[in-house]
Every structure is written in C-alpha cells, then in structure tokens.
Design a protein around this nucleic acid. Sequence first.
DNA 1: TTTATAGGAATGAATATTCATTCCGTTTTT
DNA 2: AAAAACGGAATGAATATTCATTCCTATAAA
Lengths: 191, 191
Amino acid sequence: MPTSTTKRDDILDSALTLFAERGFDATTIPMIANDAKVGAGTIYRYFANKEVLVNTLFQHYVTLFKEALEKDYPEGTGIREQFHHLFQGMIRFTNEHDHALYFIKTHTSAYFLDAESREQFGHLLMILENFFEAGKQQGQIRELPSKALIAIIFGGFLQLYQLIRVGELEASAELLAGVEESCWDAVRHHA
Amino acid sequence: MPTSTTKRDDILDSALTLFAERGFDATTIPMIANDAKVGAGTIYRYFANKEVLVNTLFQHYVTLFKEALEKDYPEGTGIREQFHHLFQGMIRFTNEHDHALYFIKTHTSAYFLDAESREQFGHLLMILENFFEAGKQQGQIRELPSKALIAIIFGGFLQLYQLIRVGELEASAELLAGVEESCWDAVRHHA
DNA sequence: TTTATAGGAATGAATATTCATTCCGTTTTT
DNA sequence: AAAAACGGAATGAATATTCATTCCTATAAA
C-alpha cells in the first residue's frame, strides 16, 4: 500500500481529464502516466487494469454527483425551487469537477462499464425520474416520459458546458441563469 | 477505379454503424471489413487510411444534413414555422440515416477531424445561427447566445434519439411532437 | 461462338506499429 | 537494514497497413 494517497489521486485526475477529452479508447496508459508524472507501472500498483481504473473513476464521480443533487434538497417546497436546486447542483458539480460530468455522459453506455457502474448510474437517474414524476402528478411538468425530459435537460446542459470548456462561451452568472430558465421552460407544463 | 460503387458504399455503411455504436478508436479496420463483407485490404483501395475514411464519412453526412435543413426552407414565413421545418429536418434526417446524426455529434470535436471536416461543420452551425440571430432581432427568440441555443436543442434532441435507438423510448409521432414543443419553449421568447 | 489475354479489383497473409501489462533494478520510507 | 513504492524498459498481444497473388470482367483474337 502506498505511503500517501497523492499518486493515486494524480492518476485519477489525469485519467479523468484524458478520458473526457479523448475518450477511453484513445487514451493510453502511458499518456495517463506521463500526465500524472508517474511511471506506467505505478498505475498498476493502484489499479488492476485499465478497465478497473475507468470504472473506479466512473463510480466515484457518479456518487459525488448524486450527493451534490441530494445535499440540502428542499423537500417540502415548490417544484420550481426544487428544479433550481437540481440545476444549481449540476452547475456547482461541474465547476468543482471540471471534466467529471462530461466524462460521465460520454461513457454512460460504454461497453467496458461493469455492473456496479451501471447500477450506480441507475440510482442517479432515479433521483431525476422521481422529481419529474412527482412534478407531472402535480400538473406542473410537461407530459412527456421522464426519461425524455432528463435527456433534454442533460443533453442540452452538457452540450453547452462543452462549449464553455472549449472557450466558445463564458460561464457568466447571466448566461447560466438564462440557461436554467430555458431548461425550465423546456420541461414545465405550459398553460 | 472500381467497376461498381457498391463496395465503397458497403464500407461506408458499415463504418458509419460501427463508429456510431463503438466510436472511432474502438472500431477496428477488420471489424469494418468483416461487417461490409470485404477483405481488409479492400478498404485501402478506397481510402488511404482510417482517418481519411472517418473524415470522408463525416463530411458526407454533414453535407447531407445541411441539405436536409435547407431544402424547402420556408423563407418568408413565421419563425415558428421555420423552427418546425428545421426540427422536422432533424427528424427526417435521423430516420433516413439511422446513425448519422449521432455519429456526427459524437465525433464533432474529435482529434482526428481534418480542416475540411471542421469547416463543413462550421457551415452547418452557421445555418442554425442565422436562424436564431434573425429570431432574436424579431424579439421572438430568447436572448441567449445562438451557440448556447443550438447546444440546448441539439444536445437535448440527440440525447433523446440515443434513448430511442437503444430502445428505451419509442419514436411515436406524439412523443416527437411533444419534444418539438419542449424544444421550442426552450428557445422562444416568453412574454 | 469460343478461347485467350489484359488490367483493374479484391483478397488476406505478412509486416510494422501501438499499446496494455509485467518485471526488475533503483529509490524512498520505516 | 529491511520493506515498500517507483519508474521505465521489456514483453507480448492486438491492430493498422502493405503487398504479392488471385479473381473478374471486358475486349480481342481465333
């Protein structure tokens, strides 16, 4: 076992960035080692193989994201406020963990995800489905399948964040507020 | 030069499917050859290498998609009708060319795209930007950067179509109409 | 009409390259 | 000094690409 946990974290950080930018298959172990400033062999001291590494990363960030959404969730309040909480959670999470959401999204249906990763991701979807189902019952959310509503919000938001990451847009408070409003209008029930 | 154009098309068809399903890096030339029922070497009679193949494919479908959006565009009409045209164009294109839009989307910022591919994609964005810019000037479209509006629509739509392709949702007329309405509400100016 | 021949197209085994993983000598920690 | 952690060259498997050979098809000679 390693003395400090620094190298393991360095490896995970580099892997996250590279997997998000180039994808799993286009990212080589030597690339990760180089970026993390460790020897290629060192990676195998911490992770049995490349798939274990990517699954560890995936589960780690899915869990963090779930926590970001659930933390301080305003249970008894209005649906718009709950939506705001979830949306802010996405933004906060994205700011704190630069490439994480994009990594999750682009690897969500990858062939190398193990059962545990898929299950964790299922939990995440459940949180969002519950929100939309409740909203539809109250007549406050558009009558579309929850899966579709989630896809619209997530797809749109992540596509947008890609532009921000690439530098084509700046993540100003004004822009983000506008995007939240746009997403809300996409899912809410209109009179 | 080949006697018929069949093999080249077979190769392109197989490559499209496999690139869309597995991604560029996880798709091997022998896989493509096998799926297209040609020898691996045959692929190199038509395409100098794997990157030329993927760029050819990318440019081909970006061009087709541009045409689908521009064909019969209702120039002098209302903005909602124009939006409908563009949205229907997306749907029609997706139905006609099963994996094409998803392939385009997932490979849009890939490291192996050449200058020509990037430029073609730029043209495509321009069509949509022009639409949104005009709409904002008329006060009919939400005041957000056009790039952001495009990201929201495209990201959402494509994420949704992924669910359909995977079989989690059915592409009924009702669903599609609802999604169009949702997307429209996302981008339109609200009083 | 049949047979020969040329030349492009197709093939897939052989080669070159890339990459995940292992191994072992060196360095660091205890 | 012993044990653990490291680095990075070495290994072997997988993959892109090449190329010598075979297969077609079309034209021409008989």
